[in-house]
Nucleic acid binder design. Structure first.
Ligand code: FES
Ligand code: FES
Lengths: 149, 149
DNA sequence: AAAATACTTGACAAATTTGCTCAGGTATTT
DNA sequence: AAATACCTGAGCAAATTTGTCAAGTATTTT
C-alpha cells in the first residue's frame, strides 16, 4: 500500500544527479539517463514540470543541461514530489472537503488520515537534496527520525 | 500522492462499525452499508479478506454478521490495511530486493523510502480500533504523534 | 551558414490498477 | 420451507500509470 509512482521515484533520482553538478556544471538528461537507467523521453516529461515549478533552470545547447535553481539544502524531497505527484492526500476528503463521506456524522477516520498525512509531509519536507549528497548526514538524519517516531 | 485506495478506507470504516458491536452483537454488512454508504457486495469482498486473515469472525443466519476476533485495542489500523492493500512499500525495491535500481551503486534514495515506510508503519500500528471508538483518546494520541514528529 | 547538442511541447497508447457489480452458492434460524 | 446473511469467483468499465514519439526551438561550435 501507499506506493510511490515511478514519476516521483525517478524525479528524485534525477534531481539527485542534477544536484551533483551544483553549482556550476549543468547536467544533461543524457547523463542522468545513463546513470539512472531511465529513458531521456520520460525524463524530459518530468524535468519539464520541475523546471516550470522553478526547482531547476535549463541551459540549452552543447554542454547544456539542468542546474538547481537554488542550493541543494533548500530543495526538499517533498517539494520535488509535490510537483510530480501533487500534494500528500491519503483520502479525497483531505484534499477536497466537499468529498467527505456521506451519511456519516463527523467521520472518525478522517482525523487519522489527516494526521498521518501531516507526519509524512513533515518528514519529506525535512530531508533535502543536500542530505542525499552526504549519505553520512542522511543516515544520521534517518536515525534521528526513526527514534522520535 | 500516496493515496490510500477505497479498499483500505472502506475497510477501516467497516471495521469501525463492527467494533461498535463488540463484544456481543454481530454487525451485518447490511447495517455497515447503511451507515457508511458502501455497497454490500463490495463490503463482502473486503470482509472476506479480513475474516480469512483472522481479524473478524462471521456469524451466519438471521441476526448474524461479523464480530471482532479480539478486543478492539488489539486490532491496529495497520493490520487492517496490510490485509487489504499489502504491506507498506513505497517502492518496489523495498518489498523485493531483486527489483532495485539497476546501474546504480548503492542507491541513495532507497534509504529514504525505507525510513519513511517504517515511520508510516509505526504510526499505523500504534493506532487501534479502540482509539477510533474513543475519539477523545484519539485526539490525544494524534496530538502526541504530531509533537514527536 | 551548417551541424551538432540539448531542451520543449503535446499527443497518444499499452499496461496496470481501481472500484466496483453480478450470479450463484452455503449455513443458520424461525 | 422461508428468510436472513455470509461466501466465492468471475468479470468489467473507468481511471491511472508508465511510458513513447514526433516535431519543434534555442545555443554553441566549426
Ligand atoms: S470524511 Fe474522509 S474518510 Fe470520512
Ligand atoms: S534501489 Fe530502490 S530506489 Fe533505488
Amino acid at each position: 500500500m501507499l506506493r510511490l509512482s515511478t514519476r516521483g521515484q525517478y524525479g528524485v533520482r534525477a534531481m539527485f544527479e542534477i544536484a551533483r553538478g551544483w553549482p556550476h556544471r549543468p547536467v544533461s538528461l543524457k547523463e542522468v539517463s545513463r546513470r539512472q537507467d531511465v529513458s531521456v523521453a520520460y525524463l524530459e516529461q518530468l524535468l519539464g514540470k520541475l523546471r516550470r515549478a522553478g526547482l531547476v533552470v535549463s541551459v540549452k545547447g552543447p554542454g547544456g543541461g539542468y542546474l538547481l535553481s537554488r542550493p541543494p539544502e533548500r530543495i526538499s524531497i517533498g517539494s520535488i514530489l509535490k510537483e510530480l505527484e501533487g500534494p500528500v492526500a491519503l483520502t479525497a476528503c483531505v484534499q477536497d472537503p466537499r468529498k467527505g463521506c456521506v451519511r456519516v456524522e463527523g467521520c472518525v477516520t478522517s482525523l487519522l488520515w489527516r494526521a498521518l498525512g501531516q507526519r509524512i509531509e513533515q518528514f519529506l519536507d525535512t530531508i533535502t537534496l543536500a542530505d542525499l549528497l552526504n549519505t553520512n548526514a542522511l543516515r544520521r538524519q534517518v536515525r534521528k527520525e526513526a527514534q522520535s517516531a
